[in-house]
Design a protein around this nucleic acid. Structure first.
Length: 263
DNA sequence: ATGGTCGAGTATCGA
């Protein structure tokens, strides 16, 4: 039985940092959180290795866009999963990385995104990141309208504003906080999306990612880079939004916690 | 001590 209001959808996004390494915790978490739709990132699996049957036994249909060693995104749904698209599907040259997958779940067009990290400002990968954002916006704009039910959930590898990092001085000159990266997220908001977590909480010190090193999680030194962006029709019916910090605790956690919303 | 940890895979790179 869903924990949501009748007809509502509990949607989560979670960068699991290797589904192979994380599968025991993912299964436990599915059983306790009971989400209806899950956007996964960094599965680090080839499509042959994706545990379609295990998720099926738990009641979830799934679509996975994987490549093997790196990246890899998926959507799980127990409220239907239709019209999947792997990657941009825009007829242009294929993205070399598996970073985007889209499907319709109970009438909502859902994308799971793993935005490139960027590595260092002005690195080749940083420019790939900015171009990737532009292509994402173009694909969204061509496929759906702001008046549709649209959700883009994932690891955006951008802290949208200064509240979204534990210490702005520590990030001076770093990726994830530069004006072009923030403008890329802002561009999605200008298109017609809302950051549903930020809609609800003005506070700082609410993060979704904590580096494994230096005990950062325990010192509450994190970043909010995992976002649920929703079109207005969806964002307007958000009842509840949270970061499941418990999923970052204990043995063999991902370095990211799930971000969840009830629509 | 100018690092500190994970996960890929098995030397190092990526995050």
């Amino acid at each position: 039985m869903a924990v949501t209001t009748l007809g509502a959808m509990l949607l989560a996004t979670w960068n699991v940092n290797s589904l192979k390494a994380r599968m025991p915790r993912v299964i436990d978490w599915l059983g306790s959180a009971r989400p209806d739709v899950v956007c996964l990132q960094e599965t680090k699996l080839g499509n042959d290795a994706f545990p379609t049957d295990e998720f099926g036994e738990l009641g979830y249909e799934s679509v996975h866009h994987g490549e093997g060693q790196w990246n890899g995104v998926a959507i799980l749904s127990r409220v239907g999963l239709a019209d999947p698209v792997l990657g941009f599907g825009d007829g242009e040259e294929e993205d070399p990385d598996a970073r985007l997958v889209t499907a319709t779940c109970d009438g909502v067009r859902v994308s799971s995104v793993y935005v490139p990290n960027g590595r260092e400002v002005d690195h080749e990968h940083y420019h790939y990141k900015l171009a990737w954002f532009e292509r994402l916006r173009a694909r969204i704009d061509s496929e759906v309208s702001p008046s549709d039910d649209v959700v883009v959930g994932g690891d955006f590898n951008v802290a949208p504003d200064d509240r979204d990092v534990w210490d702005t001085k520590s990030f001076a000159g770093s990726t994830h906080v530069t004006a072009p990266e923030r403008a890329a997220v802002e561009s999605l908001l200008e298109w017609g999306m809302r950051d549903v977590f930020r809609d609800r909480y003005d506070d700082d010190k609410l993060y979704s990612y904590w580096d494994y090193r230096k005990g950062m999680f325990h010192m509450h030194k994190g970043m909010r880079i995992d976002l649920i962006l929703a079109s207005e029709s969806v964002a307007d019916r958000a009842e509840f939004v949270l970061v499941d910090r418990n999923a970052r605790k204990g043995s063999k956690p991902s370095d990211h916690a799930p971000v969840m919303a009830i629509f």
